[in-house]
């Protein structure tokens, strides 16, 4: 009896082993796993799609706008939504709202993403240094950062741009300074956690220097969480930048930018409330998309899920 059962067993075992092996052959890197999870998350797909559309719209706006966003017309002031030639109406100077919103996306997205990107680089460097060094260096760095924390971020942004003077460059600079402390703090806390793990001790025990340990063992484990946090700041940055423009500290007229448009249209809030709200709707759509995407990213990066 044994011959047949044995061969059957052997076959079954081999099949099982092959199946196991095949399952493991597909085992891939951490980031492709994250992408796979994101691709299965409808919220992530929709928000990523919206962001992609906004970015494409911003890039190609000058070529696809239906009419000149700078052309004023006294007889076409504050036309309602749905007017012929002006699908989204016109603003207080008779300029086409749709064209201005499309072109405005360029500066608004730029002001939302750039400060966060620069602050991500600088803040991560500061935070990782403080977290990995620990001790007195950590205390000095983090307490200095805390000084900036003492101011509410809106107030700090306004104070900095006010002191530096109006203009896009100064607004970018002040927003970058505003975002460095929170990013540095997140970077410091995740780095401190990673530093206490045994694999960092093991790397030290194998004679590796601090720089090598940070490069090989720390960066890969901390950049993800910091990045997720930074994406959630893009929405804040857009709103702050809009606020600066609203106060006349950022973008200057006649340049279209959503915050500035919100400002100049506020006089029309009683006569044409829907038109006055349009730039705010754009800001809302953009910031909620970034927030939802960063939420999805965070849950996709959680290995335990």
């Amino acid at each position: 009896m044994s011959a047949t059962t044995l061969s059957f067993d052997a076959k079954a075992q081999k099949a099982a082993a092959d199946a196991v092996e095949a399952a493991f052959e597909r085992s891939t890197g951490f980031w492709s796993g994250v992408l796979r999870k994101l691709a299965r998350d409808p919220v992530a797909l929709v928000s990523a799609g919206v962001i992609l559309l906004l970015i494409l719209m911003a890039i190609f706006a000058p070529w696809i706008v239906p009419s000149d966003p700078y052309k004023t017309s006294m007889i076409n002031r504050l036309k309602p939504i749905g007017t012929e030639h002006f699908p989204l109406g016109t603003d207080e100077l008779g300029r086409d709202m749709l064209s201005r919103l499309m072109v405005g996306a360029r500066l608004s997205l730029f002001m939302g993403i750039t400060p966060v990107l620069i602050a991500f680089l600088i803040g991560s460097a500061i935070g990782i240094l403080a977290g990995f060094a620990g001790g007195w260096l950590n205390t000095i760095i983090m307490r200095s950062i805390d000084v900036l924390y003492a101011f509410p971020s809106v107030l700090l942004a306004i104070a900095l741009s006010g002191a530096l003077g109006a203009g896009i460059g100064n607004a970018l600079l002040s927003l970058t300074i505003v975002f460095i402390p929170p990013i540095a703090r997140v970077a410091e806390s995740v780095t401190t956690q990673v530093r206490g793990r045994d694999f960092v001790e093991a790397a030290r025990a194998s004679g590796a220097g601090g720089f090598t340990i940070v490069r090989v063992h720390v960066l890969g484990n901390v950049l993800g969480p910091i990045f997720v946090y930074a994406t959630s700041l893009i929405a804040v940055s857009m709103i702050l930048a809009s606020g600066l423009s609203f106060l006349g500290l950022g973008v200057r007229p006649p340049e279209p930018e959503w915050g500035l448009m919100l400002n100049t249209l506020r006089t029309a809030i009683y006569s044409q409330p829907w038109i006055a709200a349009l730039p705010g709707v754009m800001i809302f759509i953009t910031s909620i998309s970034f927030n939802l995407l960063s939420d999805s990213l965070r849950s996709a990066m959680d290995v335990k899920n």
């Binding site: 694999f199 001790e201 025990a205 004679g207 063992h217 890969g220």
Partner: peptide
């Protein structure tokens, strides 16, 4: 110290914490 560490190595208790999850 560097040369010494090459000749002496340590195995930790927590097998998960002692491996870098990203490598």
């Amino acid at each position: 110290l560097r040369e010494y560490r090459r000749q002496v190595q340590l195995v930790f208790q927590d097998s998960y914490s002692s491996l870098n999850p990203r490598l």
